[in-house]
Amino acid sequence: MSTSNKDTNDGRKTINIRGRPRPYLDHRRVGRRDYYLLEPVGSPFRQRYLAFDPRSGPGGDFFLFQVWPGGPATQQQLRVLKRLKDDSLPRVVEWQRRGSDVDIVLTWIEGTPLAEYLENIREGRRPPVSPRDAVRLIHGLANAVCKLHQRQQIAHGDIQPPNVIITDHPSRLVLIDFGSAWTIESTAWREEGDGVHRCYAAPELQNKGATPVGFFADQFSVSVLFYEFLTQQLPYGGLGGKAGLPVHVSRAKDALAAPSQVSPPCRALPSSLREGIDRAVLRGLALDPADRYVDRHQWLNDLFAVHARFRLAPELPHVENVLTRVVHWLVKPR
């Protein structure tokens, strides 16, 4: 493996990655390790890059390289990142102060950004997610979020497609950005972080003066993703979490249509599955946090019940069930 740099015809420097030259944007040294920043990832408002360390193991390895301005918000993020010990989440490899900024290196999660995945569905480049797979993926994400709250005492606060990776073999949803996260014990004096996407953020994260409860806020954001998987639309007529803002709430509270009213694949499901999905989605999307699932056990139990029912022998839709009973009655020996 060569670590020497070369220039491309357009003047860009390259590094050999597993036998192939690849352009890079910048080179940073953290401690005794060299990181080559290959391309920006995620939100354009954040300094976050796919990086490569040519001396990390045989053949080198990829990492997530973040640059944060110094200050209370960065200190809050470091407290959060130091608690991430689960292999299914990004973990801090090392960090250092560089002038007024802080460079943070995290493990890289292989997969496709959920924002790109959903865009490919909208553009017809990949088929929509089936209700069965949507339930499986969201059940897994909800488990991860609840573990984050219960074991690490962390609220994510910004669950949206650019901050989620969908992995392959097996496919699952993984949170990759904790720029707006906070520790549960610091909720009352938390920093605002680097912003949220108003369509995916819970209303209480957007209303000034409200003290958010992390579990309720993250539950709402996961439910927005659930709704989008099932319908290829955002809830509340496209408003998502903005529906809870004072300017919208009076006319938006009755605008939430159940997935089975919007999605033909959901509508075609047997009633037990259809009603179970609708119930879990609508409760998680309640604009008032008090109307959502009050604890993780209720939320996970409802999601698990639907997930488990998909794995059982399929129940016939109502019309087919009636026709089957009629046929059985007609052919019954008399």
Rank of each mutant, 00 (worst) to 15 (best):
S2T: 11
T3E: 01
S4R: 14
N5T: 12
N5F: 02
K6C: 07
T8P: 05
R12E: 12
N16V: 14
I17P: 01
R18P: 05
P21T: 06
L25S: 05
D26T: 05
H27G: 02
H27P: 02
R32Y: 11
R33I: 08
Y36W: 12
Y36P: 10
Y36E: 07
L38I: 15
P40F: 04
P44L: 02
R46L: 15
Q47N: 12
F52Y: 15
D53Q: 14
P54E: 08
P58V: 15
G59H: 02
G59P: 10
D61E: 15
D61W: 08
F62P: 02
F62T: 09
F63T: 12
F63D: 04
F63Q: 06
F63C: 07
V67G: 01
V67F: 08
G71E: 03
G71R: 05
P72D: 14
T74A: 09
V80R: 07
L81P: 04
L81Y: 06
R83C: 08
R83A: 09
L84I: 10
K85C: 10
D86W: 08
D87P: 12
R91L: 04
W95L: 12
S100E: 14
L106I: 14
E110Q: 14
G111M: 09
P113G: 14
P113F: 01
E119C: 01
N120S: 12
R122F: 01
G124A: 06
R125Y: 12
P128H: 06
A134C: 03
N143K: 14
Q150S: 10
G157V: 13
G157W: 06
Q160A: 15
P161Q: 00
N163Y: 07
V164Y: 02
S171D: 09
I176F: 07
I176M: 08
S180V: 12
S180F: 07
A181G: 09
S186W: 03
A188V: 15
W189N: 11
R190Q: 06
E191V: 13
G193Q: 10
V196N: 00
C199A: 09
A202T: 07
A202H: 03
P203L: 04
E204F: 08
L205Y: 04
Q206G: 04
N207C: 09
K208R: 15
G209D: 06
P212Q: 06
V213D: 15
G214K: 06
F216N: 11
V222R: 01
S223Y: 00
L225A: 02
F226V: 05
F226L: 05
L234C: 01
L234M: 03
P235Q: 01
A243G: 05
R251Y: 10
A255M: 10
A255I: 03
A257T: 02
P259W: 04
Q261H: 10
V262P: 05
P265V: 13
C266V: 15
R267D: 10
L269D: 01
P270S: 13
S271W: 03
S271E: 09
A286K: 00
D288I: 02
V294G: 11
D295Q: 13
H297T: 15
Q298D: 09
L300C: 08
V306S: 03
H307M: 00
F310W: 14
F310V: 04
R311A: 13
A313W: 00
V319S: 05
E320H: 10
N321S: 14
L323I: 11
R325K: 11
V326N: 00
W329T: 10
V331K: 14
